[in-house]
Design a binder for these strands. Structure first.
Lengths: 143, 143
DNA sequence: AAGTGCCTCATACTTTAGTAGGGATCTTCG
DNA sequence: CGAAGATCCCTACTAAAGTATGAGGCACTT
């Protein structure tokens, strides 16, 4: 349900309640209904309306707030000691690319990619690319 | 803030508002304030209270609902066509283990691991283990 | 009973990954 | 300036990974 639709409904409910109260008052001439009772009823009613409104308007915000939790920890990246290029190579590794494909994508030679890989492995203290990817993800260095 | 604390606060706010209205009425003898205006003010106030209440009572539920989102999609696993053993090998691959380490951990030979790997790659339509891991994660076959 | 899929293992081979050990610019910083 | 780090590239080698092919045993289904 859209925000505007909800707002319009809110207005309609308010109008309806006021009309109903006036109608009841007119029908039964119950002037004895004290203001306190009126207030109590209306307060309770609109607390409910507020709750309902809240569930419609607030929920969406909370959900999108929680879902995209920070995927990477920039502090972790800095303290990892990885250079910009090494990080790029690592990210492409994580996407399953071979060294040759990484070389093509970055317009550098295969030996260069291997060079970056090796130094990257040393810095992450691993021996294989799959291990590097796993470790980097647990450290939130990559998504 | 606890649920009970919130409820008590709600009661106190209600009491305070009623008291304030009566006080204002008493102080200024403004009998001219129509019931409609009263109702309007109270309705608006308690809609606000309801909204606030909602943010306190509902948010927690929503959060725990979203956070532990299903990490693996069992339906995706079934429709992937992977056998139990292939899935095991895949999971260990994702943890960065070498074929030899996987063989040791599962008490099978290296050729057997390679055999599982190859058929697993075919089923996932990939060529490398890193690619397999990446694809399996995007399909929610593994965590 | 024959067929199918799974798990296991093997050998032989090709390809990719990773290591070792260099060297060449270029920028930045003390 | 000189040192350090980053980037780029190379050769040569070893170690894994991956492919191809075949085969035996087991369980389940038709």
């Amino acid at each position: 349900m859209g925000r505007w639709t909800t707002m319009v409904l809110y207005g309609l409910v308010l109008a309806a309640v006021v009309a109903t109260l006036k109608y009841v008052e007119y029908r039964f001439m119950v002037k004895s209904l004290s203001t306190e009772v009126y207030i109590g009823v209306v307060a309770a009613l609109f607390t409910g309306v507020g709750l309902w409104l809240g569930s419609k308007l607030i929920t969406a915000k909370k959900v999108v707030q929680v879902a995209p939790a920070a995927v990477v920890d920039h502090q972790a990246i800095r303290s990892s000691g990885l250079s910009a290029r090494e990080l790029e190579v690592l990210q492409l590794m994580a996407e399953g690319l071979s060294n040759q494909e990484i070389a093509n994508k970055l317009f550098i030679s295969l030996p260069t990619v291997k060079s970056h890989s090796s130094s990257l492995f040393t810095k992450l203290e691993v021996k294989r690319r799959t291990e590097a990817v796993h470790r980097a993800k647990s450290l939130r260095i990559i998504a």
